[in-house]
Design a protein around this nucleic acid. Structure first.
Length: 897
DNA sequence: GCGGACTGCTTACCT
DNA sequence: ACAGGTAAGCAGTCCGCG
């Protein structure tokens, strides 16, 4: 067979890959499938020498999937024609029926024979055919990304660091305590799982040297350069790493190398080819590359451009593929209508921060929602308190000094984002890799459902269980509850009606990771809810309250075991270790990160069960979890009442107790543990809490004077800054209130603040920006103004089906966005800043409006509704404070007549 | 033909 | 593309009314 030039080039490049030496401790960082050799290639990182080693699979592992006996005949027919398939009967555990079955393993020479076009997946009902081959390989070989290994001959064997004695003892103690107080822990399996997690998660995380990269491309007004077209010059490449800072600049006629003062980091390149070659060389010398949107722009652009003879104006040569550290995978994907080539680094790992920061779990749990937009500038401002360099006009028209500074700044911001909070992001990613069994490369690009998928799929393989097909999980039963919100599938958490008023000495108690605890204690898993055993379905003790479900008592479910062991480890082990002063600060920090990573996984573990995209989606599990949660909180409220403790509020897993007398919290907590099997902890103590009649809306002052606000409009990000600031100065006053009496002086101070603010508004003293409402648009602007269920068939009263596509109203922030001038287009994810005006649209983008146009009346209304949420608690209201009664239009009419 | 009650849509928040 | 529950503001429709 002829070898294509590409193949030869690739082989040639292979010789630059360093092969994994024997007996060296290395961390597995990723696995990729190499189509040329039809083998998996593993990448390992040497934490001492900071190099990446390669290892190509030497076992005889092959792609495969399964089918069941009922389809055996058909499978044999196919195999008779397509000789590449090999069939084998293999015993497998079928968790849904709790039986051992004979499965037929269909072995193929390459992954495409399974899942490609015309593959077996299209011809037969098969199991486990939607798993990427490199994932399959890792599951079967038990190799876990983020773990340490060494090579012995052709074998890769585990090579973990030894746990310190303190940490080991802490684990023993934890297990011992567990055995004393819970029956699960007496189970050998549970102890085995806890130990395995700890062995895995206590491994140190090396700091990997990394390089951030950002490129600038000459571009015209209003047209973004596209990698596929690669028709514009690469004019600058910024490089920032642990020990380098550079910006490669293209010398052009408009900016000749005439000795102009440039920043010291600048390196001039005569041609684009030279610029690209220098860039590629640097990329190759690092193991971890970080970009912002490099997946869809920087890397494919660099690659495409390197293959364009225009980069060498004299000889018209391109850069040979083997000198390029970027690998373009053959299959192109269509994303948002744009065709992009998926790119991969040949030898190292590439993290695209744009994608990683978009992950909701990362945004919320790793960065506590500090950023809300996914642009480099927005994230940098939120996390680093630094921003991009601003400029006017076209990037192509920037003088070279400015271009250099701009490009370097972007690169530096990208780099610094990975350093934020002591390299939190990277550390977290490596811990999540261990839990999810996914490489950092993979997991930084996918949602949390895939993380949990990885963890559970691995587990199935480990216990030789067949992974069910999604349809099989639908037969687990109908949902048992009705949601409060229509369009939702089942009922969720319970919210207790707040008792309006000001309550002093309120203790807040909450259940420590309630849903994971429920999954653990009540043995919830897709195979244990409505399990096949009569002994369970007939046992009233196994019935889940307020539902038609029962749960299994014969066997512990896999989700329950995994989530349960992780939860207990976090609550009873890692949280303690992270505070243990007898261990080193570095180690403590690792445990803090581990605890955070587990939290992310736990928080999502319940949600994914009710999410269609999750491959093990099982509504009864999610439904049952929430139902038990409501039952537990309701019973606990009853217990509080019996003990004479007043519950003034509660939401899902928390209760607000009004001035509980000595020992009551302990009493209730103990009751919850014995009767419900869950940990009820004292979360915080408020000096006082203010409730109106609204749920998820309150204000509390902690014993130390810290003010906690939840849900109030003044806190919301869309509220104009001047109102928000006024709101927060009112809170400052309230933070200083200690007793009932203090409210009198506080009230007067607050009235002054409000009066002052209203006066400033009416005399146009607030700058325009402070008046803007800031609202995010969540879909592309064209999609507004239509019924969401456009063209959905609606059966009208007379029984006729009609097509309903009537135009609906356009929201204010979209109206404002449509008024943008000079071709500025709003897109999904942008925050629109607009002010309310007296113009016909009623709104205007803030930068286009003047004070004259401001609709002050509307702003007074906004102030009123926002501030009254606090004022009413003080027995005052906005209208009375600003003196003159606000006149309605009718009043005005009346008076003028 | 007008105004209040109501519904639906959208966003931001809470657990 | 993890879940459901709650609030607020706006846009549009329904419905009653000599």
């Amino acid at each position: 067979m002829d070898q294509s030039p590409l193949l030869q080039n690739d082989k040639q490049y292979l010789s630059y890959e360093k092969e994994l030496p024997e007996n060296t401790r290395v961390m597995l960082i990723s696995a990729v499938y190499s189509g040329e050799n039809q083998k998996v290639k593993l990448k390992f990182y040497d934490p001492n020498l900071h190099v990446i080693y390669f290892w190509q699979d030497k076992t005889n592992h092959k792609p495969y999937c399964y089918t069941k006996l009922e389809y055996e005949k058909r499978a044999e027919e196919i195999a008779a024609v397509e000789k590449k398939f090999e069939l084998k009967r293999i015993p497998k555990i079928d968790l849904l029926s709790d039986r051992e079955i004979q499965a037929i393993k269909i072995i193929a020479p390459d992954p495409l024979s399974i899942g490609g076009r015309g593959g077996i997946r299209e011809k037969l009902t098969v199991w486990e055919a939607n798993i990427k081959y490199h994932e399959n390989y890792l599951y079967d070989t038990r190799l876990i990304p983020g773990s340490y290994y060494k090579r012995k001959g052709d074998e890769i064997i585990e090579d973990p660091y030894k746990m310190s004695e303190i940490v080991q003892n802490a684990l023993k103690n934890f297990l011992w305590d567990k055995i004393l107080d819970s029956k699960e822990a007496r189970n050998d399996k549970y102890r085995e799982y806890v130990r395995e997690w700890a062995d895995l998660l206590n491994q140190p995380i090396p700091e990997i040297k990394r390089l951030a990269l950002d490129i600038e491309v000459d571009s015209e007004e209003g047209r973004m350069p596209v990698p596929r077209e690669h028709d514009r010059k690469v004019t600058a490449v910024g490089i920032v790493s642990n020990d380098e800072r550079k910006v490669f600049l293209l010398e052009q006629d408009k900016n000749p190398d005439d000795g102009t003062e440039l920043i010291p980091e600048a390196v001039m390149c005569k041609t684009e080819k030279e610029l690209l070659e220098k860039t590629f060389k640097l990329i190759s010398s690092y193991n971890l590359l970080v970009t912002f949107n490099g997946d869809d722009f920087d890397l494919p652009y660099l690659y495409e451009r390197s293959q364009d003879p225009a980069i060498d104006p004299i000889n018209h040569t391109i850069i040979p593929k083997e000198e390029i550290p970027i690998l373009v995978k053959r299959d192109t994907v269509i994303k948002k209508g744009i065709q992009t080539e998926p790119v991969q680094l040949r030898h190292g790992v590439h993290i695209d921060l744009f994608r990683t920061f978009q992950n909701r779990s990362i945004q919320i749990y790793a960065f506590s929602h500090k950023y809300s937009e996914y642009r480099l500038n927005a994230i940098s401002e939120a996390l680093l308190n630094d921003s991009k360099i601003e400029f006017e006009g076209n990037i192509g028209d920037l003088p070279i000094q400015k271009l250099a500074q701009y490009c370097l700044k972007d690169t530096e911001l990208t780099f610094r984002l990975t350093r934020f909070n002591d390299n939190l992001l990277l550390k977290l990613l490596f811990v999540i890799a261990r839990i999810s069994r996914l490489s950092v490369e993979d997991l930084s690009r996918v949602g949390v459902n895939q993380w949990i998928r990885g963890m559970l799929f691995y587990e199935h393989r480990k216990i030789n269980a067949l992974i069910p097909r999604t349809e099989e999980l639908r037969y687990k039963g109908e949902v048992s509850t009705t949601a409060i919100i229509k369009e939702k599938k089942y009922r969720g958490g319970l919210v207790v009606e707040p008792t309006p008023g000001i309550h002093f000495n309120v203790s807040v108690v909450d259940f420590a990771s309630l849903y994971p605890s429920i999954i653990n204690v009540h043995n919830l898993s897709y195979e244990t809810v409505n399990c096949p055993h009569d002994s369970c379905s007939q046992d009233p003790h196994q019935k889940i309250p307020d539902t038609a479900y029962w749960t299994c008592k014969e066997k512990k479910g896999i989700t329950s075991l995994l989530i349960g062991s992780l939860r207990d480890l976090r609550v009873n082990y890692y949280k303690q270790l992270s505070k243990d002063k007898t261990i080193s600060p570095e180690e403590r920090q690792l445990y803090t990160v581990v605890s955070q990573a587990i939290k992310v996984i736990l928080n999502a573990s319940y949600g994914v069960m009710g999410a269609e995209i999750f491959p093990l989606y099982c509504l009864p599990v999610a439904d049952a979890t929430a139902a038990i949660g409501r039952n537990i909180i309701t019973k606990t409220i009853d217990k509080c009442r019996e003990s004479g403790v007043e519950v003034v509020y509660g939401d899902t897993d928390s209760l607000f107790l009004r001035d509980p007398s000595q020992g009551k919290v302990e009493e209730i907590s103990k009751w919850a543990k014995t009767n419900q099997g869950v940990d009820l902890e004292l979360d915080k103590e408020y000096r006082y809490v203010v409730f109106n009649n609204l749920k998820k809306n309150y204000l509390g002052v902690l014993k130390d004077g810290t003010v906690d606000v939840k849900g109030l409009t003044g806190k919301k990000s869309h509220t104009p800054a001047f109102i928000r600031k006024t709101f927060y100065s009112m809170l400052d006053i309230l933070g200083k209130v200690n007793t009932e009496k203090d409210f009198d002086t506080a009230r007067e101070k607050i009235k002054n603040i409000v009066r002052e603010s209203a006066k400033k508004l009416e005399s146009d003293e607030y700058p325009m920006e402070e008046l803007s409402f800031n609202v995010m648009i969540n879909k592309s602007p064209e999609k507004y103004g239509k019924k969401s269920s456009e063209n959905k068939r609606i059966t009208s009263i007379d029984g006729h089906d009609s097509i309903n596509n009537s135009i609906k109203g356009i929201p204010q922030h979209i109206k404002a966005a449509l008024l943008f001038s000079n071709g500025r287009q709003a897109k999904a994810g942008d925050i629109i800043s607009y002010v309310k005006t007296k113009t016909s649209e009623g709104v205007k983008p803030v930068e286009l409006a003047t004070h004259k146009e401001i609709d002050t009346e509307k702003y007074l209304e906004a102030m009123e509704s926002t501030l009254d949420q606090i004022l009413t608690a003080l027995d005052v209201n906005f209208k009375s404070i600003i003196g003159k009664p606000r006149q309605s239009n009718l009043d005005e009419l009346f008076w003028s007549n």
